[in-house]
Amino acid sequence: MTFSLLHWVLDTWADEPAREVFRQGATLLASRYRQLGLNQLLPIDRVWVGVRSTRPDAFGGFHHPNQGYRHLQLASVITRYGRLSDPRLASPELVALDLLRSYAHDCLHWGSFREYRLQEGRVVRSRYGINRRDPQGRTYSARDKDDAVSTRNLGIVMEGATDREARTIAATVADRLGLTELIAPPGRLAFRDTTGRLEPSDFDDADPGVAGRFRLAMAGYEHGVGMRYRQFLAETGGAEAGTLHGLIVAAMIGGDLSGLTGWLDRRHGARAFPRIFRSPAYAGPDPGE
């Protein structure tokens, strides 16, 4: 895999509409994240983009395996959408929109609250966003069951909230610029995925080959994160699901859960946060303790 820095990738694009996708998206996400308490974005010279591969089966984009934000290195590793063995862009606007989603997504990972402790000579991350680990390393909430349709796992909640923000930004830019869904798969599916418009029926038909593996990864992420998070918001937030989502993201960034826990207590009774999320195996403090 050959990598380039994100700002180098953008500077080499000759396609002006694609550049405009990222320009408008960067302006929009800066404003949105500032409202939520994040005043500095992940520097684009900390974002590495996989642009070419010698493997004929390499297919890049948001769902490429083993990519994402690296906490230790304070950097993001992503790939451009499409066949990485082909230097041509399948659709410049779609490539730009997918990179925008990945960047917006990793900006929130980079900007989320973190707390570390020294334990037996090792540095251990004890808090991340609204999640935490006890001294034995056990996370606050248990894993969801494989067939779960909703979530009570804080890791999935934070990942779902992060990607909801990224997809909303991508969808807003696509609507502003009049980008339409691409007819041919997998571009059509990738557009719907990037803008948060997937439906269960989108995964009904088999799609063999290189793009098919990307599609399977997309389906796994949607079922395991996107759909579960939407269902959680509907169950827990009801008509105020949007408010609940905003409180979750703000708490992730600032590390102060009082607004979120207070909102949950008023609607679901005292100590709602631990009743909803806490695993019996967890032996550490609750938020606010």
Rank of each mutant, 00 (worst) to 15 (best):
L5W: 12
D11Y: 15
D11Q: 15
D11L: 15
T12Q: 15
A14D: 08
A14M: 12
E16C: 00
P17H: 11
A18M: 08
E20I: 14
R23D: 10
G25F: 04
G25I: 04
T27F: 00
T27C: 06
L28R: 14
L29N: 01
S31T: 12
Q35K: 13
L38G: 05
N39W: 11
W48N: 10
V49P: 02
V49Q: 02
G50I: 06
V51F: 10
R52K: 08
P56I: 05
F59M: 10
H63P: 03
H63M: 13
H64N: 09
P65V: 15
N66V: 12
Y69K: 11
Q73H: 00
A75E: 10
I78N: 02
I78K: 03
I78V: 15
R80A: 10
Y81R: 13
G82R: 05
G82F: 03
S85V: 12
S85N: 11
D86P: 06
D86T: 14
D86Q: 14
R88S: 13
R88W: 01
L89N: 07
P92L: 05
P92W: 05
P92M: 00
E93G: 07
A96C: 14
L99F: 09
R101N: 01
L108P: 01
H109E: 08
W110D: 00
W110E: 02
S112D: 04
L118I: 03
R122V: 03
V123T: 06
V124A: 02
R125H: 03
S126C: 11
Y128V: 03
I130Q: 03
Q136Y: 09
Q136N: 13
G137W: 09
K145A: 10
N153V: 01
N153Y: 06
G155K: 07
I156V: 14
A161D: 06
A170Q: 01
A170I: 04
A174D: 06
L177T: 08
E181S: 13
I183N: 08
G187W: 02
R192T: 13
T194E: 03
R197H: 08
S201T: 13
D202Q: 11
F203A: 11
D204E: 09
A206F: 06
D207Y: 01
P208C: 08
V210Y: 03
A211V: 04
F214G: 04
F214T: 02
A217M: 12
A219G: 09
G220R: 10
G220D: 13
G220Q: 14
G220V: 02
G224Q: 04
V225H: 05
G226Y: 07
R228T: 03
R230N: 07
R230L: 03
A234N: 13
G237M: 00
G238Y: 12
H245V: 04
G246T: 02
A250Q: 15
A251H: 01
A251R: 00
G255Y: 02
G255N: 11
L260N: 05
W263R: 04
L264P: 00
D265R: 15
R267E: 09
R267V: 13
A272Y: 04
F273R: 00
F273C: 08
P274E: 07
R275G: 00
R278T: 01
P280N: 00
